[in-house]
Amino acid sequence: MTETILDIDAVSKRFVKELDIAERTARLLGSSVKEQTVHAVDEVSLSVAKGEVLGLVGESGCGKSTLGRMVAGLMRPSDGEIRFRGRNIGTLKGAEARDAALKIQMVFQDPMSSLNPRLRVDEIVGEAPRVHGIVPRREVTAYVDDLLERVGLDPSTRRRYPHQFSGGQRARIGIARALAVKPDFIVCDESVAALDVSIQAQILNLFMRLREQFDLTYLFISHDLGVVEHISDRIAVMYLGRLVELGDAEVVFSRPNHPYTQALVEEIPTFETKKKVYGAIKGEIPSPLDPPPGCHFHPRCPHAFERCRIERPLLKEVAPGRLSACHLNDEASRRGAA
């Protein structure tokens, strides 16, 4: 568990909305319209050990999916680099770039929009391994059958189209397609979010079983903390593009350090049958176009003080293997020292 397979090093992703012609003209005439920039991901650093399941949680707009897409090579970081087995995947060329791309696969949220509706299942699953020469052409059929069986689909359904399957079965097809190129690393972006509870449990079990069988590493992205807690070894919490807390799954849940994580853990609906009084943290998630200064969470934080409004808290180690970005930790340690 000590070997690092993926290194995300100070990665940022900015999306800039360019001015249209009317706005450019307006600017020439002295108006103060500016290009709008969204810091979707803001200097995030993470490393993932081989064989680990790293859960990435956060609410909508926190940049978790953007980070996942950069890891899977679907987007380029604006700054920073992502190293897979020590090599920057952004600068690899030719065959090496292709190999790195094959080793990191992605399973998407909505299987219907990520599966080509006009291809049969065996084409969806078998195309990539055939094209990349992963299995000899003659053996593709047997290879696909084996994969379908491993993800819990009947190989006799190989000639069907995606619309002939239920949601849970489509999720299985998406997983089989990702596994077909023998990846080492899988990015699961809300892969169980669209499924019913009973089907979700089946797919989560499948993920856990495949991880053992194929020796996989997962980056498991979800807004559902219950799911993430169950499947992950470590958990990273993001808020408005920044990493706010990182640590062992059980510790993050039992003793969350950052006030945002505390609020998130508090709000998970549980089977507490006595009438739960939902406390609710105040306010809305601010727009990423115009994030608050200092700590992004300060307008909603019950413990915010002067420093939080001005200075961005850095991610610091608060316990071995445990990082948190909150000024309160400094206060606590100062008080401890005094």
Binding site: V197, S198, Q200, A201, Q202, L204, N205, M208, R209, L225, G226, V227, E229, H230, I231, A249, E250, I268, T270, F271
Partner: peptide, 18 residues
Amino acid sequence: LIESVPHGKKHREMLAQI
């Protein structure tokens, strides 16, 4: 249904599934 909800179940244990 209740048993297939992951929250609060033993970490990494297979979930009971329908």
